[in-house]
Simulated assay, not measured.
Amino acid sequence: MAAIHPTALIDPAAELAADVAVGPYAVIGPHVRIGAGSRIGAHCVIEGRTSIGPGNRIFQFASIGAAPQDKKYAGEPTRLEIGAGNTIREFVTINTGTVQDVGVTRLGDDNWIMAYVHIAHDCQLGSHTILANAVQLAGHVHIGDWAVIGGITGVHQYVRVGAHAMAGFQTRLSQDLPPFITASGNPAAAQGINVEGLRRRGFSPERIAAIKHMYRLIYRQGLPLDAARQAIQAQSASGDADMAADARLMLGFLASASRGIVR
């Protein structure tokens, strides 16, 4: 049987795997599904059409699956989907999606979401991200795999953060942050590439050097963005599969940067 504290309020229609643990005074609504091995802390409220995968740890006082903070929301059956193995700390708030976008807010796997983070409607988080304390994501934000967002950082609606990018403490992101790039400041400015993060993930020195070359093309050689993209296009034809994939990742991101990029 699931380890349910007697003071928890679980709607009979909710679907909880047999070994889910639920702490005191938690409230779980009728459209919630929670996967095996997940643990729900005291006083958490999980509502809406929310699906939580296996092995998640949600700490006390989190609010998961509440209606979007969007005046256009009219009660449509939008959703929240959370993958596997995520850590969601105290007082985190995550809202469902809206019909003005894809109708679902998504988190991948193995994300580390620290206290007081807000993830608004229609945000799309990849896997292995870190959102430090009090990060605030507005609606429709996209965060790529392995991205790191420093504490008390605000991210404007519709902004995208590329894979392996990093935003420093108290950064204001109002434009897209390309993959691999480190930025900080108010407003954000590019500071280099996320070298330490790439090393920790097993990127070779040669691969890191190729990413540094892309950074110089975009930020240090005074090229128009189209010219930098053409130079990176040549790099995408590299014989090394990983370097070519990194270049394609950068090119795809730049091609779809509708808000412009952090400079």
Rank of each mutant, 00 (worst) to 15 (best):
3 A>R: 12
5 H>D: 14
9 L>V: 15
14 A>H: 07
19 D>W: 02
24 P>H: 03
29 G>C: 00
31 H>Y: 14
33 R>D: 05
38 S>I: 01
40 I>R: 02
44 C>L: 03
55 G>R: 01
63 S>N: 13
72 K>N: 15
77 P>R: 08
77 P>Y: 02
79 R>P: 03
81 E>I: 14
91 F>E: 05
97 G>Q: 05
98 T>G: 06
103 G>K: 11
103 G>N: 06
104 V>A: 12
110 D>H: 15
118 H>N: 14
120 A>N: 05
121 H>E: 11
127 S>Y: 07
136 Q>P: 01
136 Q>C: 13
139 G>K: 08
141 V>M: 02
145 D>H: 12
145 D>M: 04
150 G>A: 05
151 G>D: 02
157 Q>N: 02
160 R>N: 02
160 R>M: 06
161 V>E: 04
163 A>P: 10
164 H>A: 03
167 A>Y: 04
167 A>E: 05
168 G>H: 00
169 F>L: 14
170 Q>D: 10
180 F>Y: 15
181 I>P: 10
184 S>C: 12
185 G>V: 02
188 A>T: 11
203 F>N: 04
205 P>D: 10
206 E>W: 04
208 I>L: 10
209 A>G: 11
211 I>S: 09
214 M>K: 08
218 I>V: 14
219 Y>F: 13
220 R>H: 11
223 L>V: 01
224 P>D: 10
227 A>P: 00
228 A>T: 06
232 I>Q: 00
237 A>L: 13
238 S>Y: 10
243 M>K: 13
244 A>Y: 08
246 D>F: 11
247 A>M: 10
258 S>D: 13
